[in-house]
Design a protein around this nucleic acid. Sequence first.
DNA 1: CTGTTAGCGCCTTCAT
DNA 2: ATGAAGGCGCTAACAG
Lengths: 327, 327
Amino acid sequence: MTGLSLATISKYYNGRNVLSSNREVIESAAAELNYRPNAFASSLRRGVTRTVGVLLPSFQVPFHLEIVIGIEKYLRSQGIGVLLTSNEQDGTPSSVNAVELLLSRRVDGIIGVPALADSSALETAVSIGIPVVTVDWCPSGLDADSVTLDNVQAGKVATQHLIDHGHRTLGALVGEEGMWSLQGRLDGFLAAARAAGITIAEDHIQRAPLNVDSGYAAMMRLLAADTRPTAVFAGNYDLTVGAVAALNDSGLRLGRDVSLVGFDSVELAQVTRPKLTVYVQPVEQIATEAARIMNARLDNPEGPRSRVVLELPGHLQIGASVRRLSD
Amino acid sequence: MTGLSLATISKYYNGRNVLSSNREVIESAAAELNYRPNAFASSLRRGVTRTVGVLLPSFQVPFHLEIVIGIEKYLRSQGIGVLLTSNEQDGTPSSVNAVELLLSRRVDGIIGVPALADSSALETAVSIGIPVVTVDWCPSGLDADSVTLDNVQAGKVATQHLIDHGHRTLGALVGEEGMWSLQGRLDGFLAAARAAGITIAEDHIQRAPLNVDSGYAAMMRLLAADTRPTAVFAGNYDLTVGAVAALNDSGLRLGRDVSLVGFDSVELAQVTRPKLTVYVQPVEQIATEAARIMNARLDNPEGPRSRVVLELPGHLQIGASVRRLSD
DNA sequence: CTGTTAGCGCCTTCAT
DNA sequence: ATGAAGGCGCTAACAG
């Protein structure tokens, strides 16, 4: 229709030089035909898809979803698409494995939020040779970059805040054995306590699956301990929700009878009474950094094979749920 | 390596009959070569990508993210990938338009959560001829299926709950003019009031942008009205958060001085004191239905061109934030 | 049940 | 600055 060769038109769409008269011919023809370059055919030819896969764990975590948004935003600005998958099983045995789906669609890289079991799936991706970046979890055995919160630091800061307010009988709500991020936060909690010369009773550390009900039950156990902690650190969003609910239901007053530092629950923090003090992850920054690292790997596939391990600091958002304990 | 022709191998991967001896040869060769069919090449040939685009509005709404998860879960079980995009602008002028990105990647269909401005973008998709399903918003001018909450019904149920508890001075927090879903909820609110013979004062309906701060300010205005409403309906998640915070800050007691029915904030509802009564959308169901409709359109492209407009009911989750008003 | 062939839409040499 | 030709990996149609 333009009378031009395909090659010229290809060049036009790839930003190479074309006579401005031809440019106009192409543009008007494209508009009339509703033409749009086919990214698939281009991928086939170039061997590159400009698409990265994002892998989410099976359970829903608001935090992860915010991360996905951040990743998408950054990558789209680079013209890179985001293929989203989760490892959620729907029971159907025919259900396609998430990583397999990404791989067969030839994503250029994968950003994964691995759950306990998923890192083996990511292993496949690594062995194929595409870049893998993990977020929120730094699997030890995996040759992948990672971007996470500085969990130990987070645990320390939150706990130090309690100690600074005079608390010495401290409790913690954390995840079950093997949850990498929660383990870090617990380590920070313990380190801060140790540094202050505080001993933590064994039943003042409650481990629970990361959901509201378990958090509720764990907090109840904490409140029923031989000596009740005067201050509690809840290590994640769900545990925080459960802890506040448990506190309310036991008739104890948040911030008066028991002080509490929660995690990640910015909106929650505003509706409790008094407002909750929470440790907040830098979600957007985590997402952007993960996307940036991925983009850099894609731009320079032969780049340094050394792992990038980024641990970012969050911050404490002060409410009124931590009471100063007069001695 | 197998000695077989490409055609046979292709058939194997497409589930057609192959001699079992050949099957084994293929499988072992594939394992050794780490072979995996290239979905792109297949798409190019077949003219179909088995990928649908999901378009999110620019602002973050937890509700939308849950929907995406639900959609992905359903579609993956059908072997369909989800390409996620948002209309978030990052300032970069080179930033690729979301719908353009989806279209150039030849998605088979688009599921969109349109914001006010986005429906023109979806128009392009419709004119291309690919199926479009909108969620949470039913644009009048667009030839697309839609799945939404039954917003009018939701407003009615929430309001009726207040009326049933003896309240007759009612207030509402809703979105600004033109927000389709919030308008429906307001209509339901007004209908329920009218049916009960209740007149709503003009300053008892506060419109605000859908974010926490605006909700806070709007609730403050409501509380400062000439005659303060004894009960308030908050029409969305952010407005609910803002409303509770405003109530707390004014020293009024939730459920004692002012009754409140919130929206969508299941977790929030558990941490307020007393627990919040909220109207809850059937998120998972909305997501699944949208995905199901899309899948049906893809399976049968020549299907009926009549629009499917699905309005699903939610339910009221009872807390203790609505007080019975003795006459 | 298996093989042959052509072509999906694009990009990249290489020539002009 | 433009054109001609080959091939990316796969599948549909047909023949055997």
